[in-house]
Design a protein around this nucleic acid. Structure first.
Lengths: 128, 128
DNA sequence: AGATACTTGACAATGGTATTGTCAGGTTTC
DNA sequence: GAAACCTGACAATACCATTGTCAAGTATCT
């Protein structure tokens, strides 16, 4: 499901709006250190919804990037699968709360899940 | 983590208290239609914490049973893995809200997750 | 025009998870 | 003493996540 692709006419909005779609898939993939294939999978799963150019090219905004970073954190560090991520995102929308950030702040002790979270990334910027 | 095993002296509490530990593992397993092995796995994962008799026998309360039913619903019908269940339970504790029930009420459209939820169980009894 | 990067759809290999199942050695219950 | 519990180990099955590639087609940019 997920709201329909934004499909903006590029060049609109403030020049540094985090919602502004700017990164083509290869760039987005390198930013978050995943294969472009993975990003397409996330999209198919309804977890991210990058805008598209009028000619159908994916464009990821800063917000999309952060969303992907959350997915990476949840899957890689906490061991949650995509179905779980879906539920969490859905809960967040429904509750209108940054429940994920709360998890992050207080630190989920998922380290005992045989997952050593060597380094904790910072998926959500304070500029949100 | 999860609070330490209740380790009650049996026979205490109201005779029909949902917190009262009464079901031995084989009975609990048959109630929720899983292998006893599975229940032990859930416990190892910190998802359920049945009481123990003074001689170390697991005793599941009505509440424990419901909790397991939630795990089954999340894993079997929504495709969430145990790590995801852990996060959801933790969120619920942290937020002090019945977020899961809310998901259930409004109906998560996880049917599109290639999971045909043939029959929807009723993890939370109205007697709660 | 031509090179490069994008699109979708398919296929596959890798490693991990979930669940069930069993076996062994030991304790509890009846 | 038999049946059911305990822990720990090992294994089989089936599915999931991620990366990777190939093909045929479109878009972008010089």
């Amino acid at each position: 499901m997920v709201p329909e692709p934004v499909r903006v006419s590029i060049g609109r909005g403030d020049s540094r709006d985090p919602k502004r779609p700017v990164y083509v898939i290869s760039v987005a993939a390198s930013i978050v250190s995943v294969h472009p294939r993975t990003l397409r999978i996330y999209e198919d799963a309804g977890l991210v919804c990058p805008a598209r150019t009028p000619t159908n090219i994916r464009l990821y905004s800063e917000i999309d990037i952060r969303r992907v970073m959350w997915i990476r954190h949840l899957t890689q560090n906490l061991g949650v699968n995509l179905a779980g991520v879906r539920i969490l995102f859905e809960l967040e929308e429904r509750l209108g709360t940054r429940i994920l950030e709360r998890l992050y702040d207080e630190g989920v002790d998922a380290a005992d899940a045989a997952k050593s979270a060597d380094e904790a990334p910072e998926p959500s910027a304070s500029t949100a």
